[in-house]
Amino acid sequence: MTYDFSMTDEQRSIVEVTRAFVERELSPHEEEVERTGSVRPELLTEIKRKALAAGLYAANMPESVGGAGLDTVTLVLVEKELGKTSYALHYTGVARPSNILLAGTPEQRERYLLPCVRGERVECLAMTEPEAGSDVRAIRTRAIRDGDGWRIHGTKHFISHADESDFVILLARTGTDETGRGTMSIFLIDLDTPGVSLHAGYRNVSHRGYTNSTIQFDNAFVPADCLLGEEGEGFALAGTWLAATRLQVAATCLGRAERALELSIAHAANRVQFGQPIGRFQGVGFKLAEMTVELRAAELLTLDAAWRVDQGTATDADIAIAKLKATEMLAMVADEAIQIHGGMGLMDELPLERIWRDARIERIWDGTSEIQRHIISRSLLRPRGA
């Protein structure tokens, strides 16, 4: 198998546009978001407008629905550049609507998908519950048939940017299969539906300004046409979303790690102690070398997984390998970057303490590192009957 990840002229142009957008429209607002813990509504509106004009909004969506139609490798390159700045700024301001919405009927596309692509509506996805995180099949939120619709009961938490969303993509139990395990379905539910209430979530040390909420469903009635796909297919549909977001997480980790490494190299070259740049000391120089090796390995594994997606050959393990390596790599690079900078690394005059804090969540959300290792090991053992 031969790989060539050198950028095409088109990819290089897209990366340059994204990098310029980040430097001009997003990075200048990092300190404000860190200080206030929020993105001003008027700032968010302005970022969305400029992202739409730049062609960066909904870049993950196919051209047939108004998106940029980028292939997965190019999307990874874009996500890497976006990842260099505040998550709250780039994820809410430069939205990438959930690919689950592509499974909708023509009517659902008109009501939910297309407005998201145009920046008119925002979605959030609700899977996690207080008693169900990694074990998605343990969710308790239920959808019960009621005449020509469904009654929804349950609670979801850790729901990202729900307070800025118009509707929720909900995973709920709708029955049991022949083995007695719960079957899942997905529903599209407007957040102003009676019986649906939104509550402030938890304060998070990672990604300030990127909020989470709790959503309560108290006998909320939704019509039958809110069901996305077929009844009982929710788990499979959710899997398509997880693959895309896990690659996205891996790619944004690359961007932050690259930023931390660049700062570290500059500091090691310019900081003089004992009469010479500290980078000449083996204790610092070797750190830079190890950080570079780990970043290069994570980038290649992420590009490899993206390439396999484009070829139609990607497995869950391919995605898990990329997500695992990139998130663990970022933790190491962020920590070593602070060590190289010494006390100043922990001061908020530099972005390193933010990168360090933000890195912690990446090994948890969208599937913990332990879950990724489970997926990888299972792929190795199953062919041998173990």
Rank of each mutant, 00 (worst) to 15 (best):
F158H: 10
I159K: 02
I159E: 02
S160P: 08
S160F: 05
S160A: 10
A162Y: 09
D163A: 12
D163M: 02
D163P: 12
E164W: 15
V168W: 05
V168H: 02
L170N: 11
L171Y: 11
T174D: 15
G175P: 06
D177V: 04
T179M: 10
G180L: 12
G180Q: 11
G180S: 11
G182S: 11
G182D: 11
T183W: 09
T183C: 09
I186E: 13
I186G: 08
F187V: 09
I189Q: 06
I189P: 08
D190W: 11
L191Q: 00
L191S: 00
D192C: 10
T193C: 01
T193M: 05
G195R: 12
G195E: 11
V196A: 12
V196R: 04
L198Y: 01
H199G: 10
A200R: 07
G201C: 10
R203N: 08
R203S: 13
R203V: 13
V205Q: 02
S213C: 10
T214P: 03
T214R: 09
T214S: 04
Q216Y: 02
N219A: 14
N219S: 12
F221V: 11
A224Y: 02
A224S: 13
C226N: 03
L227E: 06
L228V: 07
L228D: 00
G229C: 12
E231D: 01
E231H: 10
G232I: 01
A236D: 15
L237R: 00
A238E: 12
G239I: 05
W241P: 00
L242C: 06
A244M: 11
T245K: 12
R246L: 11
L247G: 11
L247M: 01
Q248K: 14
Q248N: 05
V249T: 13
V249N: 15
V249R: 07
V249D: 00
C253Y: 06
L254H: 05
L254V: 01
A257I: 05
E258F: 09
E258P: 02
A260I: 04
L261R: 02
L261N: 12
E262V: 08
